[in-house]
């Protein structure tokens, strides 16, 4: 009984953290100046705003004993989805950023330093 309560509290805290990360990412996508910084905000949304609340939902589902033994199936599905997202999301944003950098379709301004360009020139 107490363990289920602890699970629900941990899950709720994770969901709150996730919603905060979503809010930060939304503000970042609206306010940040160029494509590469906005990709950074998008990654905050993928990991902080999707992965964390999914794990929290899994903990909440495990804690709700009124759902019966079916809650294990639901929690398993939730954890599996979370693992898939944490594998696929960074790979997707990596592919997007790489394509944008190589095709030079986006503007780099404002920029402070471009380390990759320096290394390619051989400095």
């Amino acid at each position: 009984m107490i363990s289920s309560l602890i699970l629900i509290i941990i899950g709720g805290a994770l969901v709150v953290i996730g919603s905060f990360c979503s809010l930060v990412a939304a503000i970042g996508i609206l306010r940040l100046p160029n494509f590469f910084t906005r990709i950074h905000a998008l990654t905050i949304n993928i990991i902080g705003g999707t992965f964390t609340p999914l794990i929290g939902c899994g903990f909440i589902t495990l804690g709700l004993e009124t759902l019966g033994s079916e809650r294990l199936f639901i929690a398993g599905g939730i954890f599996f989805t979370a693992i898939l997202i944490v594998i696929l999301g960074p790979a997707g944003s990596h592919a997007l950023t790489r394509a944008a950098y190589r095709s030079k379709a986006v503007s780099f301004e404002p920029k402070f330093i471009n380390q990759l360009e320096k290394e390619q020139r051989g400095d």
């Binding site: 696929l88 790979a91 990596h94 592919a95 790489r98």
Partner: peptide, 16 residues
Amino acid sequence: GLSKIVKTVTKTLLVI
């Protein structure tokens, strides 16, 4: 094709 990171992730995704 795309970079090695994306290829590795796609191999995992293919099995799943």
